[in-house]
């Protein structure tokens, strides 16, 4: 439809563009300067060569990426990180959904208090929390001394520096994010829709499968993506609870940059981590959307 705009309409349209620009401009500039530029520089570094004294030599080579994928040590770290992140996401979904559902449907005046309780773990810093887990799970920790005192075991169990303790640690950090995301989505689902399903003969299982879960899908996806990304990139928890023996991708990147002083290799590991996260997130998103379209 071709229409000629009057002067006032044109002015109005221009004002709208200016207003929109003023609203999104600062955040855009901040993100561009603080994120995109460093990423671009990092990507360039990852293609550079490394000299005999670990100095960076300008080049265009895939050697760093080849080194990562040909050394079983590094591919093991990647596989381990993926395994931990997937486990954490699934456990957070299973633990988080019922909790989020109860919170979302709660009519009590203390609802806000309960939501604060869910967020409370985030008030404690990662290092402090990890110290707590160490006191609990260390070889002289509460769990081991208790088990030894009641005679269940003779020697302390190896709990610290294992996959289990790191997974538990990351779940504890990520669960609040999952619960809050799910809760806000479930709150948007009309309670009457659930009742309609019941009155039409659906028992709670069928109601959840056919009505609640499909309608909560955006929340399930958003919560899972958030949890997965946080777990893939976890740093403090694997360092403090995993120690030098249980290495994940985040600490590996840091190690290359700071301890090995190998910037090109560190940069390429960063990109492997970023790519793995994005590809898996996007794939899961597409698969789930397609499965539940309508």
């Amino acid at each position: 439809m071709a229409t000629t705009l009057s002067a006032s309409e044109r002015r109005e349209a221009r004002d709208q563009v200016l207003t929109a620009g003023a609203l999104i401009g600062p955040a855009t500039i901040f993100v561009a300067a603080g994120l995109l530029v460093p990423i671009a520089i990092l990507f360039r570094y990852s293609l550079n060569d490394v000299g005999p004294y670990k100095q960076m030599i300008e080049a265009f080579t895939a050697a760093n990426y080849l080194r990562f994928f040909s050394d079983p040590y590094y591919t093991t770290v990647l596989a381990r990180t993926l395994r931990v992140a997937v486990t954490c996401t699934l456990v957070c979904l299973l633990l988080g959904f019922p909790l989020a559902y109860v919170l979302a449907r709660m009519q009590s005046q203390r609802k806000n208090l309960f939501i604060m309780l869910v967020v409370l773990p985030l008030f404690v810093g990662n290092a402090v929390r990890a110290a707590g887990w160490m006191a609990l799970f260390g070889s002289k920790g509460v769990v081991n001394s208790l088990l030894m005192r009641i005679g269940l075991i003779d020697a302390p169990l190896e709990i610290m520096y294992t996959e289990v303790v790191v997974t538990i640690g990351i779940i504890a950090v990520n669960l609040p994010f999952m619960v809050l995301t799910l809760q806000s989505v479930i709150e948007g689902i009309d309670r009457a829709v659930e009742e309609a399903a019941f009155s039409l003969g659906a028992n709670p299982y069928h109601m959840a499968r056919r009505v609640l879960l499909p309608l909560a899908l955006p929340g399930l996806l958003a919560g899972s993506i958030l949890t997965f990304i946080l777990a893939m990139n976890a740093y403090a928890t694997p360092v403090l609870l995993g120690g030098p023996r249980f290495v994940m991708m985040g600490p590996l990147v840091y190690n290359q940059f700071v301890q090995q002083n190998n910037w090109p290799f560190g940069a390429s590991i960063s990109f492997v981590l970023m790519a793995a996260t994005i590809v898996l997130t996007a794939t899961a998103n597409i698969l789930v959307q397609r499965r539940y379209r309508r």
Partner: peptide, 14 residues
């Protein structure tokens, strides 16, 4: 029982 709600309560995804 067949129940009809004030808010219709249709399943929006169906």
């Amino acid at each position: 029982t067949g129940l009809v709600f004030q808010s219709y309560a249709l399943f929006p995804h169906l």
